[in-house]
Amino acid sequence: MNFLAHLFLSGDSEEILVGNLLEDYVVGRIEHPRNQHFSSNIKNGILLHRIIDTFTDTHTAVSTCKTVLYKHYHKYASVVIDIYFDHYLAKHWYSYSTEPFEDFRKRAHQSLLNYWGILPDKMKPMVDSMIKYDWLKNYSEFWGIERALTGVAQRTAYKSNMEKAVDDLKEHYDFFDENFRLFFPQIIKECTHFLNEKDYTHNFIIVR
């Protein structure tokens, strides 16, 4: 899952949301002494991120999508799918959330600003750009997805061709959409179970 899905799946807690996005900058065990400055809620957000990644990486719908993309993007196929799925979440937002999309974006942005002091320095330019250019909204458009894919491609160690992956999205649009619709209600249930166990609230629509 990419930024939009991780933020959405965090529910209503600011600290869960911040911890979920922060996880990419946390190495190793959550309870390692280097992470002792994080609150228990931030740590739960880090844990939720890892649960989401494990669930996504082992889901059959995601594997099915990879079969179409692997020949072009190899090990980066999963990265491309993550960004595609953010597109479909933005497009189908009101199928999964009772919170207006604009309100959600404002809340997510403000949450990150409220915890600016605990964000690693190397994370701050990304967050600043996300807010300034409203990445989360842009994911609903092909040009926004192309920009996201190009940005990721520029940061890879090897040539990935991901900047061209918007063409595959257009070509197989209904196929990826169908697999997203199979996958996303199930990951919502997975995250709902986690949030309920920890007594956090959310605005998810549970699709039966």
Score class of each variant (00 low, 15 high):
87 H>P: 04
28 G>M: 09
29 R>K: 13
110 Q>E: 11
93 W>A: 01
101 F>P: 02
196 N>A: 14
62 V>S: 02
62 V>W: 15
41 N>I: 09
167 D>Q: 02
50 R>K: 14
88 Y>K: 00
134 D>M: 08
10 S>P: 14
79 V>C: 01
174 D>C: 12
11 G>F: 08
112 L>W: 08
113 L>Y: 14
72 H>D: 13
9 L>P: 14
98 T>F: 13
188 I>F: 12
202 H>F: 15
206 I>K: 15
157 A>Y: 05
202 H>E: 13
60 T>Y: 09
10 S>Y: 10
2 N>H: 04
32 H>L: 09
125 P>N: 07
81 I>A: 10
78 S>K: 04
45 G>W: 08
52 I>V: 08
33 P>S: 02
176 F>E: 12
40 S>I: 01
165 A>L: 05
133 Y>F: 09
100 P>N: 11
82 D>T: 06
147 R>M: 10
180 F>H: 09
21 L>T: 11
2 N>R: 03
145 I>D: 06
152 V>F: 01
65 C>E: 11
110 Q>V: 15
161 N>H: 12
99 E>D: 03
26 V>K: 04
176 F>L: 09
104 F>S: 06
200 Y>G: 15
169 L>V: 00
111 S>I: 11
178 E>M: 07
207 V>I: 06
115 Y>N: 14
31 E>R: 06
197 E>D: 15
139 Y>E: 04
65 C>S: 05
130 M>Y: 04
177 D>E: 07
182 L>G: 09
61 A>T: 09
60 T>N: 08
182 L>V: 13
163 E>A: 00
176 F>A: 05
113 L>N: 10
113 L>M: 12
8 F>T: 06
99 E>P: 05
78 S>T: 08
43 K>M: 12
177 D>A: 06
100 P>K: 00
139 Y>F: 02
129 S>M: 03
67 T>R: 12
208 R>M: 01
9 L>N: 10
179 N>V: 04
14 E>F: 15
135 W>H: 07
46 I>W: 11
154 Q>V: 11
83 I>P: 02
8 F>N: 10
106 K>E: 02
84 Y>S: 04
188 I>M: 11
110 Q>N: 13
14 E>A: 13
52 I>E: 13
175 F>R: 06
31 E>Y: 08
105 R>M: 04
53 D>F: 00
70 Y>K: 05
176 F>N: 05
115 Y>M: 10
59 H>F: 14
157 A>W: 10
97 S>H: 13
6 H>V: 03
186 Q>T: 15
188 I>A: 09
